[in-house]
Design a protein around this nucleic acid. Structure first.
Lengths: 339, 339
DNA sequence: TATACATGGACCTAAAATGTCCCGCTATGA
DNA sequence: TCATAGCGGGACATTTTAGGTCCATGTATA
């Protein structure tokens, strides 16, 4: 199979381009369906006319259907996308990127999806899809999955689908309030994931800034305590990685912490922890839930982050998480390798 | 892999056609290099202009070079052809034919090459190439290879190349004179093979029609006797299969034998043996060398024959040679399966 | 040295791809 | 209920490409 594609690259590179184009179109339609020509052509950067021809073709192949609401992928089209997924990764050179990333970042497993989420927001969804596939591969019988917040994780949640095998999954937020926007909060995402997978969830209601005493009494509450217990025993953690300054600014970080973060050259953020270039923790938001050292005992840790702008953060964070699975995009991957 | 190709076909219905076209062009060039556009386009049945475009493309891909003498395949092109060989067999459905042939002929191993040697003479060369590859796979340390005559075997000889591993091969003619044309005689072919592989050879000089007494004294000759000894101990036999009547006519078969061959409904010929539809010997040319019953003790027996017109003969011969390896072409294979 | 065969340039035509503009339909939300 | 944004699709001019045809020029070889 490898050799077939290699050979095809030599013998018909022109056709592979066409294949790639059609694949992208179909893939994007799946992501955004139902969608119309105009929006689609804009998003893909293809002139509307050529898109129209391609779409016409794909329709004749029964890969998509058109309705007054827009175009959607048929089940046949879905199947095709699935079969070709691996091939296209090869064709697009993503496999190659993965190999290089494993080497430069010294990590064991990485998945790179096409595109750059800085440039095209839908790439986040593709990372989401990849993450979901990755999760499904690894989820066994009964599982507790802890998730963090962030726009990337929101994309993951959006792409979640019920697992055909069994849906005995319990979602919990990994850590208490970190000061995010509501729709990007761990709690929200946690609930959404459970809803999409028809699984269960528990939430952790911990106000952002609390006095120490209030804290202590809160975590003694039975309901809170139970959730904390679940979190500690989770078998999978899914989290995003952010740029330190951006994250600090987005959250209502107190002035003094902000100073600290900047003074210590934090570049990456994850779980409410801030890391410098070397992957060392320079600051942490005080809240309950999973702590960095707990990760070691979690079976599967999946980090999801993409976009060239996050390359530095990813690099820093990954320095201290060699056993995490990284799901990223082409933009970040290329930036990482360039360095 | 099949599903991959199916999927590609959905997205790019003419992918395989183009791939096949380019492959054929490259393959043919390798066969005939150096070769010019006119001859090439004629042989392949492609208009000269489209051939020109394709060739231009292949040149840009560094798969072939053009010189004033004509076009030749580069080493990169050769490599590609090699990689693609297996893939194309699959794509062209040859693997499928092989499977069916194994079943209908009850034989263990068969290789089918594309084309029909009745229609395009160069297909014989492809069979030759396949036969050579097959031989190389099976030849071990020191070997004695016995070969027969015929145009097909001549093609095999032509495609022979020195073996990189070792060339400690001794070629001998399988049987004495059978009345063939000089350039298709076993002796000639035997010598040619040795020359091409940089191996050694021994010849067997036995006049065609000899009195019994002369025969007896001849085979007592030390030089003849030695060669006969070698023949009997050969580890590989390569032979063609012919249509009985055609072969009988080509050789200066005496009137009475001719009658016999026809009266007994001979359809196949190999080694100077004539077989009827059931694979029973109905006549044999009297000469020295390997006898049919000796084949059982030979490690590798390879039969090479192609062209739809030979289907009947192949079928008949194979009935009594289930352990032979058959190398044939698409034309013969399809005819065989049709029956 | 003539000949045959090689490539490569030039130009024309047919056909396919693409750009442009517009129309009628329908789902949606005020 | 109705306005409207967004949908697919028709029509046609224009550009680009593929392919047909012919010929010039160079170079081995008999």
């Amino acid at each position: 199979m490898q050799s077939l594609i290699e050979a095809q690259k030599k013998l018909l590179p022109d056709l592979l381009d066409v294949m790639q184009k059609r694949y992208r179109i179909l893939q994007y339609i799946r992501l955004m369906q139902p969608i119309g020509r105009r929006v689609l052509s804009n998003s893909l950067g293809i002139s509307e006319r050529v898109l129209r021809s391609e779409v016409q073709f794909l329709k004749e192949q029964n890969l998509l259907i058109m309705s007054s609401a827009g175009m959607s992928v048929t089940s046949e089209g879905n199947e095709l996308l699935h079969i070709l997924e691996d091939v296209m990764r090869e064709v697009l050179g993503l496999k190659d990127l993965e190999k290089k990333l494993k080497h430069t970042l010294h990590i064991e497993d990485v998945i790179v999806v096409a595109g750059d989420s800085d440039l095209s927001p839908w790439v986040k969804k593709e990372m989401g899809r990849a993450c979901v596939a990755c999760m499904k591969e690894r989820l066994t019988d009964k599982n507790i999955v802890a998730v963090t917040g962030g726009t990337t994780l929101a994309a993951v949640a959006e792409m979640m689908t019920p697992d055909s095998k069994q849906s005995d999954v319990l979602f919990v937020p990994a850590r208490g309030g970190l000061g995010e926007d509501v729709k990007n909060q761990a709690n929200t995402i946690c609930a959404k994931m459970a809803e999409k997978t028809m699984g269960n969830y528990r939430l952790l209601h911990v106000p952002d800034h609390l006095s120490n005493e209030a804290y202590q009494s809160l975590i003694e509450e039975p309901t809170v305590k139970e959730v904390l217990q679940l979190i500690k025993s989770s078998s999978m953690v899914i989290h995003g990685i952010g740029d330190a300054i951006t994250m600090a600014e987005r959250r209502k970080t107190p002035e003094e912490d902000m100073e600290k973060i900047k003074a210590r050259y934090a570049v990456a953020e994850a779980f409410g922890y801030y890391f410098n270039q070397e992957g060392e923790v320079v600051h942490k938001v005080k809240t309950v839930g999973i702590q960095l050292e707990d990760l070691e005992h979690v079976q599967h840790v999946i980090a999801v982050a993409g976009g060239a702008s996050k390359a530095k953060a990813i690099k820093a964070y990954m320095k201290q998480a060699p056993h995490s699975i990284l799901i990223t995009d082409e933009g970040a991957a290329r930036a990482l390798i360039r360095e």
